[in-house]
Design a protein around this nucleic acid. Sequence first.
DNA 1: CGCACACCATGTACGTCGTACAGTTGAGGG
DNA 2: CCCTCAACTGTACGACGTACATGGTGTGCG
Lengths: 219, 219
Amino acid sequence: MAKRTVRLSRDVIVDCAMTLADAEGLDAVTIRRLAQENGVTPMAMYWHFNDKDSLLDGLSEHLLASVKLPEPGEAPWDGQLREILQAFLDAIRPHPATAVLALRRILVAEPGLRVAERVLELLRGAGFEPPRAAEVGTFLMCSVITLVAADPSPGVPPAGEEREEMLRHKKAMLGALSPERYPNVIAAAPYLAVCRDEDDYFALNLDLLIAGVRGLRRN
Amino acid sequence: MAKRTVRLSRDVIVDCAMTLADAEGLDAVTIRRLAQENGVTPMAMYWHFNDKDSLLDGLSEHLLASVKLPEPGEAPWDGQLREILQAFLDAIRPHPATAVLALRRILVAEPGLRVAERVLELLRGAGFEPPRAAEVGTFLMCSVITLVAADPSPGVPPAGEEREEMLRHKKAMLGALSPERYPNVIAAAPYLAVCRDEDDYFALNLDLLIAGVRGLRRN
DNA sequence: CGCACACCATGTACGTCGTACAGTTGAGGG
DNA sequence: CCCTCAACTGTACGACGTACATGGTGTGCG
């Protein structure tokens, strides 16, 4: 597409991949497509990355590196933990398509461990022994990722008419459910129904996680 | 491979796909591979499924249908909720490779809604209004899925020598971390390190989720 | 100035994937 | 007996990841 402007580099490739994923879903992130987008031959990518997997790792680490950790403070541990999870959430929420990738780097690559370190620190401060802190911390971070990754099952939030099609299909399906077998699903249907990405959902479930940690500590 | 024994059907294909996924990871589940495994031409699959996606949906629903829901009882809601999540966990834990598929059918297809119904019912009983119940319930189920899906990032738990290779690599990486910047990660390293799939981890985090719901209710 | 060499990109080719489209089979009912 | 139609085959296409061999280019050293 665009004729070569600057030399390629890991960073411009990763940036390009990220905007591509945001716009068209992770499936659109293809060696060939990235090459084309940069006016270059597919094989040029292999100078900068060993293979596609390490390119995706790059994407994932870029995402994790974008987490803006708040400064450590004197506030109670649960407030600080909440802030960190919030910061994590804020960073990945704009990129739901790539969020799943974070799962496999969060405990492996440096940008992820930077977040993990802070989480573990607070959990230790809250009185968890290392094994417990590790288990709880792992789960907290995975949960935040899931929170955003699980939302729109298709890579791209379907736009316009396709979205309406989906909504209609969902309504039809819910309408077909036996009301005496699924009263609660039907009652909750408007809120289950597709693509609520209201802040509510995220805030509520961050609260749930924090409250859960608090609850664990008491035992 | 095996020469034709019985006629194909959605069920035998799904079963085959499931054992294949368990044994070799989700990437091994291929139209062509499934065909070969059943001594049949790839295109034969398309008689039984519209496309690969609906085959995967079949897999996912098979998984969700295997959840053995406990009978509703008179016990307090939190105990019952815990039992349901446990049952859900038990069902998907043997199939970590396909667990992520469950994410996109749990709120769409009947076998998933069957579980959702019970979760929502208990949350309503605990005093949550439908919108809240929907948000919390969605998150709970997604979290349980994540719990098992997030574990081994490669589709197959790497066996034997490859596993040792992975462990060595991880140790090396952790050893290279600056001890004053990552004291807590390093302290927790043995517990973060690869593939703990001890029951501990699951039990602890189910407790966390339940405690979180309890905590939410109090506000 | 010119040369070498690391660096970056190209060109071609292979094997695998999902699947469109058209053709073939064989069991069972009129 | 033949017709029907569910179940399956055959062939082909375009897209994917990537191995291997080759070509150019800018920068720093002599």
